[in-house]
Amino acid sequence: MPYEIFEHTADIGLRLEAGNLEGLFRDAASGFFELSTDYAAFKNPSGETIQPVEMNFQEENAEELFMRWLQELLFFFSARRLVMVDIRFITLTPLMLKMKGSAVRFIPHKHAARYEIKAVTHHRFRVARTKSGWEAEVVFDV
């Protein structure tokens, strides 16, 4: 797995390390959706309607950009039941994200459900540049 799950008394955390920012954001999306459902089943959708998804936002630093990314994924999944199956970053810098991708609708009873992630918390939230790339920690309220 491109991430590690760590323990929090009532909730679930992800610890990520990646060679570049794109890897970090992509791995975080995998982690988020794998915690929420059987993500592998969405990778080869059959007979599912694939919907286009676009995101475009700027923040003041990499930490806020990463938080926003996770919050967007959560909103798309929670409000619209959309699971991102293809993510193409058009621009990704520590301050800006432009993404075009596609998503498949999560259908309860048809798709496996895991955690209902309520929120991306600021608790122990961390994004940092390292010698070998980027690392981050995030705790999800479940």
Partner: peptide, 9 residues
């Protein structure tokens, strides 16, 4: 069966 519960319900 009557009370919706769980992820995405």
């Amino acid at each position: 069966s009557r009370i919706p519960c769980g992820v995405g319900e």
